[in-house]
């Protein structure tokens, strides 16, 4: 369809008002939108809304133990954040394995989330942090915000719980508890410019060999990024030893439902799942 309107809101309120007319495509960094529209995988709607000028959607802050990352914050901003490097290094690590320098400079965190790829690289560490996304809408002539757990945000490949007239404004999560260790792995062999065959994050607090607050998130092994709850349950409160690792690996193997595609077979994705959970537990548990 031909674009009939082009709008450049400078505030969330303006953007959400624009969205109420429906039929709008949101443009942030453009790194996913451009190839999707040129290849025909995605069609432009009647209105193109460029949200790049909404300054209140940028930046990384912490307030009263809650972190907030504006939706337009770029992956480079995350990579270069001293705050995150000190307090939530797993996010910085994932950002370091995200595409290329040029794409990191343009891609927004909200864009990576809204694209809802099962292999979205930034999603995995955010799932470890039990992150929520904040969605701005417009009800009865006024701005209305709602929060939704990131894990519930994804409903399928490329599909989210966000309504067509909503805007993902920020990502929030609580400061990790004392001793919380989170690690991320992504398939190679390239360090970053790869669409993950499998990506995985494991987080836990380890005290005298016993794990608590265990979280396992896996990408590219199901229609959406997943939290491996059964695997977490196997590990929670248990002494991490070789047999527990075996048990966790077996549980993770049961929780994933990978497919064959041009990048990898289901077999290899399952295999990598087993390799990664062992490696990550080895790091997190030490």
């Amino acid at each position: 369809m031909n674009i009939e309107n082009y709008e450049v809101p400078v505030s969330i309120v303006e953007a959400v008002q624009s969205l109420q007319h429906g039929d709008a495509t949101i443009l942030a960094g453009g790194t996913d939108l451009t190839p999707q529209t040129t290849s025909g995988a995605k069609e432009f709607l009647r209105t193109l809304i460029n949200i790049q000028h909404i300054e209140e959607m940028r930046g990384i802050s912490v307030d009263d133990g809650r972190y907030r990352i504006g939706g337009l914050t770029t992956v480079t901003d995350i990579l270069e954040s001293a705050l995150l490097a000190a307090e939530v290094p797993v996010l910085v690590d994932a950002a370091d394995h995200f595409a290329s320098s040029q794409i990191r400079n343009a891609a927004s965190l909200a864009g990576n989330i809204c694209n809802a790829s099962p292999a979205g690289d930034m999603i995995i560490p955010l799932l470890l942090l039990d992150a929520e996304v904040e969605l701005a809408g417009w009800i009865d002539g006024t701005l209305s915000m709602r929060s939704i757990a990131l894990i519930d945000f994804f409903t399928g490949p490329g599909k989210t719980a966000m309504q067509g007239n909503e805007l993902l404004t920020s990502i929030v999560f609580a400061a990790p508890v004392e001793g919380f260790r989170a690690e991320f792995l992504k398939s190679g062999p390239r360090p970053a410019l790869e669409i993950s065959m499998v990506s995985m994050g494991v987080a836990a607090v380890q005290k005298e060999g016993v794990l608590s607050n265990v979280r396992v998130a896996i990408g590219a092994v199901a229609p959406t990024p997943i939290r491996a709850r059964a695997t977490e349950a196997v590990l929670e409160g248990q002494l991490l030893d070789e047999s527990l690792v075996d048990e966790a690996a077996a549980a993770a193997g049961r929780e994933v439902s990978p497919i064959d595609d041009v990048r990898a077979s289901a077999w290899y994705r399952s295999h990598l799942t087993g390799v990664y959970i062992r490696r990550l537990l080895n790091v997190v548990g030490n």
Binding site: L27, G30, Q102, L193
Partner: peptide, 27 residues
């Protein structure tokens, strides 16, 4: 390539490199 996979279109925008094939001109 037209999809940000090769970098042959790299330019600086506000001091940061981007793939100009992925950035809309309006931006």
């Amino acid at each position: 390539c037209g999809e940000g996979e090769c970098g042959a279109c790299t330019v600086l925008v506000d001091g940061h490199t981007i793939n100009s094939c992925l950035m809309f001109a309006v931006d």
